[in-house]
Computed example of a mutant assay.
Amino acid sequence: MHRGLKTLLAGAGVVLAAGCAAPSEPQVTFYSHGRSVEVAPAQYCNPNGEKCTGSPDAVGKLRVPDGSPLQISVPGKVSETPWQVVFLYRGANGQELDGRSPVFTPNERHAYTLELPPDGVHLEHVEVQQFSAVLTPGADGGVDFGIGGSWVLNVEQQ
């Protein structure tokens, strides 16, 4: 029994060592007015939309003054696939509005500067979305690409 325990522990050590050598999940950096935050993925899947990891609690927080741009930097693992930025903001009348960047093609860019549309006053929520190769029927006919990666930022109030 003692020998079996040694074998089990030795095997566990190999598994732990292999787990430590695994590549880390890509981080997205959000920057505004001299402060930045690196955010882990809320969801991160392989290109086929499988083997997903991440944490729904992985939400960054950053203060972005009203009317100020937000700079977003993505690593190569994100920029080598199609990706976009979606966001929620408040208009001058307090109404909640949403917007999105264009979809960036693979290797087109590693960064994006988000500036609110002319009707926007206060940025509230930002999400970087990485598309996967998974296709689903679209509500309006065509097809929709699945989201394989997601990085979330909540904007703190001033």
Rank of each mutant, 00 (worst) to 15 (best):
D57I: 01
S101Q: 02
D57N: 14
G120F: 02
A111M: 11
T105R: 11
Q95M: 10
V128H: 06
E80P: 04
V59R: 13
E108D: 11
E115C: 09
R100P: 03
G120E: 10
P82V: 08
Q95I: 07
V86R: 09
L97M: 11
S55T: 09
D66A: 15
E127Q: 10
S132Q: 13
V121Y: 01
K77W: 02
N93E: 15
E108A: 15
L62V: 12
V121E: 09
S55H: 08
E96Y: 04
F87W: 15
L116K: 04
V78M: 04
D57R: 13
E96F: 05
V128K: 06
T113D: 00
A92K: 12
G91K: 04
P82N: 15
W83A: 04
G94F: 10
Q95T: 14
V121P: 01
A111S: 14
V74Y: 14
P56C: 01
Q71P: 00
P69V: 08
D119Q: 01
Y112H: 11
G60H: 06
F104M: 14
R109M: 02
K77L: 13
D98F: 08
L97H: 05
L114V: 04
W83H: 05
V128L: 03
A58Y: 07
P75F: 09
N107H: 13
S101M: 06
V126T: 03
R109G: 02
S73V: 09
G94H: 13
G120I: 05
P56K: 10
G67K: 03
F104N: 05
L88N: 13
A111R: 12
D119C: 01
